[in-house]
Amino acid sequence: MASLSSIPWGYLEPINNIYPRGILTKSSYIIGRHPNECDIILDSKELRQHEYFIHLSSKHFIIESIDNGRSIFFRDISRNGCYIDGELIHHTKVLLQNSEHIISLALKENRAYRFIHLSGLFGVSNLDERYLKGNLLGSGSFANVYKAISHVTHTHRAIKIINKDQCEKQIGPGFSKYLYREVSIHGSVDHPCILRRFDVYHEKSDLFVEMEYAAGGSLLDRIHKTYIMDEDECKFIFYQIGCALAYLHRLKIVHRDIKPANVLLMSNERETVAKLSDFGVAKYVYASSRYLNTTIAGTQQFMAPEVQFQTGHSTNADFEFVLGYKVTILNKQNFLSGWSGKEKID
């Protein structure tokens, strides 16, 4: 029997939403159609109606963790094989060496899962042993962000403390998959206009995310200042956020919560580096229009119409209100009143 650990070593994120997701904590998992012998069962009403279903085996593949997650092995046990990053694996055991891999089942085009290696992502730590915690920078429904000094690097950091109990109350028992997706996506990106995520630690009730500290606060803070932002200042900030979004979209990542509070400024100077933050509802998206995201995600007053009305959205949702933000700043309107969409944009 596979042993169980409280710390996940891997995450199977469905590329195609007909497949079930999986947070991997046991030492090994069998994935396939068999209802009694598989740990993750590939059988549902939606999946049965799909053309790919008949190609899936009762036991399709095994994925296992060795040496506390330091090594991950994938073994195909199906009749039709699997593809790892486009390479056929048939009745073969291979070592998964990268932090992420695309898994296709039976057919190369049947991209079922993105496997994310989580081992080493979550270390166990006592907050006070690693950081000198300072003032509160911001708070949300289940997380607070504090300014801190790292005892290890002796540099300023922002520490996001996520309360797991509050997460479960608001999101439900499946809250873990959202936390893992947030920290894994944020940790996988590297761009000068995206706030850096460093280490992630957890205690029994809290998750700590160590991030870059932005001394200039948020764009929302700057909008509320007494001086009026001029056009050049506004253009420079939005140029940087546009660069960050272009980078994310090339990686097939949609942020889904673009708003002034999530744009952080690295200094109080008028000409400063702006960085996109908060990947709480970010998600990978794919080209097929058959599987556009239809879930509501983000802050309602800043949602694109296709998100709010659940008509299906992709990376286009991130750019929907960027022009509206710019018009609002230049006209010195309060962002908290929202943008009706009726204003004319030249």
Rank of each mutant, 00 (worst) to 15 (best):
L121C: 08
M229C: 07
H224N: 10
K275H: 13
Y146P: 03
Q97F: 00
I66Y: 11
V273M: 13
R130Q: 03
W9Y: 04
L56G: 01
L137D: 05
I171N: 06
I89A: 07
P8T: 05
I41L: 03
F208K: 13
L24K: 00
H101L: 03
G174Y: 14
F198M: 07
S58N: 07
M266R: 01
I66M: 06
Y227P: 03
L336G: 12
E212T: 07
L56M: 08
L245S: 04
F175R: 14
P305W: 00
Y286M: 06
E100A: 08
Y325E: 00
I103W: 01
D128P: 02
G187S: 14
G86R: 12
V254D: 10
G217E: 00
A282N: 13
H191T: 08
L107Q: 14
A106S: 14
D199Y: 07
S337F: 09
G120P: 11
I159E: 04
N98W: 01
R157Q: 10
L4F: 11
K160N: 04
R250A: 09
S5W: 09
L47A: 01
N80I: 06
K164T: 01
Q310P: 02
L265H: 04
L330W: 08
R290F: 03
D67E: 13
S176F: 07
K326D: 01
R197F: 03
I30Q: 06
K59Y: 12
P8G: 01
L292N: 08
H60N: 09
A112S: 15
S58A: 06
L12M: 07
H151S: 09
L248F: 09
K26E: 15
Y284T: 04
V307F: 05
N17G: 12
N17I: 06
H154P: 00
N80V: 11
Y325N: 00
S6P: 10
R270F: 03
S104C: 09
L42H: 06
L95I: 15
I185D: 03
L107C: 07
T155K: 12
C243N: 04
I228C: 00
R21P: 00
H202N: 10
T311D: 07
Y29G: 00
E203M: 02
Y29P: 01
I31S: 09
Y178G: 01
V124H: 05
V322W: 04
